[in-house]
């Protein structure tokens, strides 16, 4: 079956001219590929069990997929949709980040309280680092010197020195941290806390908390405003923050840390990805099983695209 699909995918996708958004469907064990020109799903590809985090190599030649319940990171040829091989990943890989060296994957092993570092060339585990319970959010600083793992139940950001592959700091955040990103040339780290309902902003040089971003969606109880994934528009002018079961995305000013606007999207919005010039934003909406396309300039949702069950991660491919 998988081969048939892969074959079909090859036939259809041969001239891959248009840019694409790839979406992992956690409860369908598939990826949906959205054509950015037509805003339609053009391919559906079977993968391992419970795919969540997905990311392309820097040259887009391979796609890495956290197949959580298969306990593997799968490596796919995006042209053919064929799984080339699995990487050893540790148990239950949920989310990962590719180091700027395009070689080392930092993987959060959700069931094991471990961050695993895998060399994608030798396909070997080069380090395992003890972190808090249910590691999830992963980030690497632009200079590649610091990796971050956030742990959902321990409620911390763990700071990993990528040279020694050891923790050099552990900073508390609010409950259930989900996602982390470096911005402003790596001088700031943002960490979202789903249950706490906040984003904590750290000064990277000192690992000290420098700001906290709060959200208030009109007509939605604060308990249901649960920040998860977030991404920055061109030149980091705006941070877009998925607010989970509040079914809204917040547009945040990264200078003032104030929310400028809330945009209504599908149900339980989780992660997101931009197109090439960052004029369009694609959000994965887990419960409604679709992707909302937001026009970044007007901050209006322009289309809803049906994908598989429980879309989780999203990745851009030119």
């Amino acid at each position: 079956m998988k081969h048939a699909l892969a074959l079909a995918a090859t036939l259809c996708a041969a001239p891959a001219l248009a840019d694409e958004i790839w979406v992992s469907n956690e409860k369908d064990d598939t990826l949906s590929v959205i054509d950015i020109e037509t805003l339609e799903v053009v391919r559906t590809i079977e993968v391992g069990e419970r795919p969540r985090g997905i990311t392309f190599s820097k040259d887009y030649s391979v796609l890495y997929i956290c197949a959580s319940d298969s306990d593997a990171v799968q490596v796919m040829d995006p042209e053919t949709g064929e799984i080339l091989h699995d990487l050893p990943s540790g148990e239950d890989p949920e989310q990962f980040v590719l180091h700027p060296n395009n070689r080392h994957l930092y993987i959060a092993n959700e069931d094991d309280a471990i961050t695993t570092v895998v060399d994608t060339e030798t396909r070997e585990v080069i380090a395992q680092i003890d972190v808090g319970i249910e590691p999830e959010g992963m980030a690497v600083s632009p200079d590649g010197k610091i990796a971050i793992t956030t742990s959902e139940t321990t409620n911390m950001a763990h700071w990993i020195d990528t040279e020694t592959r050891e923790l050099f700091a552990n900073t508390l955040v609010d409950s259930r941290p989900r996602h982390a990103e470096f911005i402003k040339g790596g001088s700031e780290l943002w960490v979202s806390s789903e249950i706490g309902g906040t984003i904590t902003v750290f000064d990277v040089a000192t690992q000290a908390e420098k700001a906290k971003i709060n959200f208030d969606v009109k007509g939605v109880h604060p308990d249901r405003v649960q920040p998860v994934g977030f991404e920055f528009s061109a030149e980091e002018a705006t941070a877009f923050v998925a607010l989970g079961p509040s079914n809204h995305v917040a547009a945040v000013n990264p200078e003032t840390y104030e929310v400028e606007e809330y945009i209504l999207v599908g149900r339980r919005v989780w992660h997101m990805e931009f197109n090439a010039d960052r004029s369009l934003l694609f959000t994965t909406n887990g419960v409604s099983g679709d992707v909302t396309v937001i026009d970044v300039a007007s901050r209006e949702p322009v289309k809803t695209i049906k994908v598989g069950r429980f879309p989780w991660g999203a990745a851009f491919r030119p």
């Binding site: 923790l167 050099f168 700091a169 552990n170 900073t171 508390l172 000192t206 690992q207 000290a208 908390e209």
Partner: peptide, 9 residues
């Protein structure tokens, strides 16, 4: 947090 940063682990 500052203290933690100073003394690390």
């Amino acid at each position: 947090t500052l203290a933690a940063a100073a003394f690390a682990l």
